[in-house]
Simulated scan of single mutants.
Amino acid sequence: MLLVGLTLLSGNARAAEPSYDDYVAQVKAGKLDIDYTAFRMAYAASPKYEPYGAARALIGQIKKAYVAGDCPAAIAHAKEVLEVNFVQIDAHMVTASCLKKAGNEEEARRAHAVFIGLVRSVLGSGDGKSPETAFVVIGIDEEYSVMAALSLTLVRQALINHGGSAFDRMEVKKRDSDEIATLYFNVDRLQAQMARTFQNQSPQKIQ
């Protein structure tokens, strides 16, 4: 009986793990002290996960509007991105910055807290110095967000395989230096999602 009870408790614990939509609802309700790694991985495990989807094009529009100083347009594009991918780092960063400029300190603080939580989640997944200690990402945009957070610019990129996993090997440098360093990002989840997408396409669609 004890074993059965423990098994049931274990099963209930697994069932109680928040889904991606649960995390989104929590953050929108103001709960910011969440497990951001679990949040990111819940998105990657959800049917909404599209690392190569429409959000990628919108991210470019966010940055273009933000650099041009058009915060209303930047926030509007950020909202579009967050509707399909609420763990998109740059959307939260731009939202926080623009809201602060507009004097909306409380909403800016919340957006900034989510931005910091997501960046720290990626940075906490490794040190990026080798394939074995690579940063684990669920989107290409996370790679660029991390590089920006570390004040690095990309020099060269290559997709490599090592130990049965896929990695983006990024040669980077500080913005005020010519010294080249190398960072590794584990992209297994992106590669697996791409493979699933191709498998789900009919031969006619592929042609």
Rank of each mutant, 00 (worst) to 15 (best):
T7Y: 06
L8A: 13
N12D: 04
N12L: 11
A13I: 08
R14Y: 13
R14L: 14
A16D: 15
A16I: 03
P18D: 08
Y20E: 05
D21A: 15
D22V: 12
V24L: 03
A25D: 09
Q26C: 00
Q26N: 07
A29R: 10
L32Q: 09
T37S: 14
F39D: 04
R40P: 01
R40S: 12
R40F: 01
Y43C: 05
A44E: 12
P47V: 10
K48Q: 13
K48W: 04
Y49H: 11
Y52N: 10
A54T: 08
R56Y: 04
A57H: 09
A57K: 12
L58A: 09
G60P: 03
Q61M: 08
Q61I: 04
I62M: 09
K63P: 00
A65C: 03
Y66D: 10
Y66N: 10
A68H: 06
A74W: 09
I75C: 04
I75T: 11
A78T: 10
E80M: 13
H92A: 07
V94Y: 05
T95L: 12
S97K: 13
K100M: 09
K101R: 14
A102D: 15
G103N: 03
N104L: 06
E106D: 15
A108M: 08
A108G: 12
R109W: 01
R109Y: 04
A111S: 14
A113R: 11
V114H: 03
I116S: 02
G117S: 13
G117R: 09
S121Y: 04
S130P: 03
T133I: 02
V136K: 14
V136P: 00
I138M: 06
I140K: 12
I140L: 12
Y144N: 08
V146M: 10
M147A: 06
M147I: 01
S151T: 06
L152F: 13
T153C: 02
V155L: 07
R156N: 13
A158T: 13
A158W: 03
G164T: 07
D168T: 12
M170I: 01
D176Y: 05
S177E: 10
S177R: 09
I180D: 01
T182S: 13
F185S: 07
F185L: 06
D188A: 11
A192R: 12
A195H: 08
T197C: 00
F198G: 01
Q199Y: 06
N200A: 13
P203K: 09
P203C: 11
K205G: 00
Q207M: 11
